[in-house]
Amino acid sequence: MKYKAYNFTVMGASHKKARRPCQDASLSLNKEEYILTAVCDGHGGEDYFRSDKGSEFAVKAVKKCMNDENIIPMLTYYANDEIKVNEMLLQLEKSIISEWNDLVESDYADNPFTDEELEQVNPRMRFRYAIGEKIECAYGTTMLVNVITDDFWFGIHIGDGECVSVDAENNFEHPIPHDDNCVFNYTTSICDRTAIYNMRHHFSTKLPKALFIASDGVDNCFENHDKLHDFYSTVLKSFDSYSEMEAIIELLDYLPKMSQKGSGDDISLGIILGK
């Protein structure tokens, strides 16, 4: 493959201070058939007290569905048929949501909510959780996935965070449209019953130089998109200038500082770089 994937997750500075778990999870897969990154950001409110598990489950669901579904050969075959491509990506999204819900139900069956967990929840949700309703909300998370092959790439996204592509001329684009439901501190979520309608995707046969996906802990460190792009340019420069190991260490060293100075939130980053 012409690409390589990396993933980084660091605990947010404020999470560390408040002794809260890291609620982000990320994944990179460098397979023969495709390269993948996934970033999931569990919600931070008291009602979402198992969102650290929820983000892990989303990453697991992505991995399983990419293994189970025969999507890469199918997309390769139908790459120029927009309708077929959309149908296949929609099916993949449905599978991921379904798998995530299965993992949540299984976890809840093995570990029902404890009184201690329910104590911190707002009363309306506490009542629902206590009678076994809407338990998936406790695990709520966003999800971003990028997959690239030698012939095409696609991105899938629900909730906040950003997917950014960089072309050979170093032009930055945000190919997955913004979800207008993600305003202020609200985000759509894989836990919503309407999750499938809030999934967005992008598919292209024009191969980029690099792809970035990030939880909102990253983009909320920057005043605007230009400054976010400056950060990504520096990542590219670092991987160009240093050995792979040095570049990884530089980034791992910097991300906690970025959280400290910026959003304070957990930070997850998935990078796919052309070799």
Binding site: H43, G44, G45, D47, Y48, N122, R124, M125, K134, C137, G140, G159, N181, N185, Y186, T187, T188, S189, C191, D192, R193, T194, A195, Y197, N198, D216, D265
Partner: peptide, 20 residues
């Protein structure tokens, strides 16, 4: 006011708003 939360606008059973 300063915490992230999830809301599904199309979902009538969504978590309550911050004002709620």
């Amino acid at each position: 006011g300063s915490k992230s939360s999830s809301v599904g606008k199309a979902n009538p059973d969504a978590a309550p708003s911050k004002q709620d």
